[in-house]
């Protein structure tokens, strides 16, 4: 999808994040490479969302460094996108919501309208293109948010618990779109506390507990034979 210089890999080196001296993320050292779907897994309060925001650049680490190690020299923000747990819909049509990101990227009006329509089509919402986004259901809004992110053709897409507020049917639709985005060549980094979802989507697992990276391994290995007692306990509890 991206010819030439890439942003990835993303290298986190001893990253920490503290608020008022209370550490919430500690000594995080990990490299995220192109291609795979990375799922950040862990119980509530493990620091999953914070980690995602640190990676995306919405937060600055209070210690350690985060850098894009690829050869791409431009603004990294232009090559990545993020979808939040609760989609933030602008007060305008679904189409305009998708086109908004493209407008910020400097795309001409005719082109961005065309692209936005194509993206809505891919998430199955073309028929609702002119509906005010805020009047749509939660699942539809999340799909608009995915289309908005996808339209930017990001090299990396971060997703923060993208199905946590959705019913099972809507969640499945969202998962299908995430797969499609990945198949189209985008690196996926997402958080979830939903074990079943992690099993369905993950190529590799980063298991976080209380702000620390406890275990990072290929998904099948992680689920088959967790290397740490914390991960094993988490898998046991969550499968009950």
């Amino acid at each position: 999808m991206h010819a030439g210089a890439t942003l990835l890999p993303l290298v986190l080196d001893g990253v920490g994040y503290a608020i008022n001296g209370t550490p919430l993320v500690n000594e995080l050292t990990v490299t995220l490479s192109a291609g795979s779907r990375t799922v950040i897994l862990g119980p509530n309060g493990a620091g999953k969302s914070l980690t995602l925001r640190l990676c995306h650049g919405l937060l600055a680490p209070t210690s350690g460094t985060i850098r894009w190690a690829g050869a791409f020299a431009g603004d990294p923000m232009r090559r990545q996108a993020m979808v939040f747990q609760r989609p933030v819909m602008l007060r305008r049509s679904a189409l305009a919501n998708v086109a908004y990101g493209l407008k910020l990227a400097g795309m001409a009006k005719a082109e961005r309208t065309e692209r936005a329509r194509a993206m809505l089509d891919r998430v199955g919402l073309l028929a609702l293109a002119d509906r005010p986004a805020r009047s749509m259901s939660g699942g539809e809004q999340q799909r608009v948010a995915l289309a908005r992110a996808w339209a930017l053709q990001p090299e990396v897409l971060f997703l923060d618990e993208p199905t946590a507020s959705l019913d099972p049917a809507a969640a499945r639709a969202v998962e299908a779109i995430i797969r499609a985005i990945h198949e189209a060549g985008t690196k996926i980094v997402m958080t979830t506390h939903n074990l079943a979802q992690a099993r369905r989507l993950a190529d590799e697992i980063l298991f976080l507990d209380r702000g620390r990276l406890v275990e990072g391994s290929p998904a099948d290995l992680f689920f088959r034979a967790p290397a740490t007692p914390e991960a094993a306990a988490f898998l046991r509890e969550e499968s009950l």
Binding site: H56, D75, G101, L104, R148
Partner: peptide
């Protein structure tokens, strides 16, 4: 909106 707008650049 803050995070979404910053994310969109």
């Amino acid at each position: 909106y803050q995070e979404q707008l910053r994310s969109l650049g």
